[in-house]
Amino acid sequence: MSARTVTVLDYGSGNVRSVVRALEHVGADVVLSAEPDDVLNADGLLVPGVGAFAAVMKGLKDVDALRMIGRRVAGGRPVLGICVGLQVLFDEGVEHGVRTPGMGEWPGTVERLQADVVPHMGWNTVQAPEDTVLFDGIGDERFYFVHSYGVQDWRFDVTQPAMKPPQVTWAEHGTPFIAAVENGPLSATQFHPEKSGDAGAQLLRNWIEGMR
């Protein structure tokens, strides 16, 4: 079997070199690009994100990523968001009192973490659901988080029988917050798998091996 191709979305977001190298490390064939051909045709699309919610949304819009991510998800093709790349998949973000609409794939608001020490920076444990794909075989390993905001309230409408609820992984810093979501082709982690040593490598491997 030939290597899975992964495009890391290039829209001027922070340290993407580590993401590229971590994916290559687990055997993916990686390009860093925002070209529609690369973004739409790769087996997997990874959306990194650091910094402010509004800045990330603007960066995504500037390369027409919202439409391309939407097209991939509609076609059942894997997308993985990381850090603010997770946050922008929710309804909206609130930073310094300013509300910014997100992509609205999942219900919820990204708000400042309520803890004594913020940013939440370092290695923390997570609680993954039993039927997880991303955390399969990883056990109790810790992952590396760096963030000041998170989704602390999950209200998915489970009364719609046609929709299988996303699998949500939680972590805690002051209050519980969402550490990862797995929702068919669309997944995301609040932590940085590319900076989470062996556990992070295993998660990326799980994501790549789960691609059809």
Partner: peptide, 8 residues
């Protein structure tokens, strides 16, 4: 469930 003390 708390963040680990980092050793650097």
């Amino acid at each position: 469930m708390t963040v680990a003390i980092r050793v650097i």
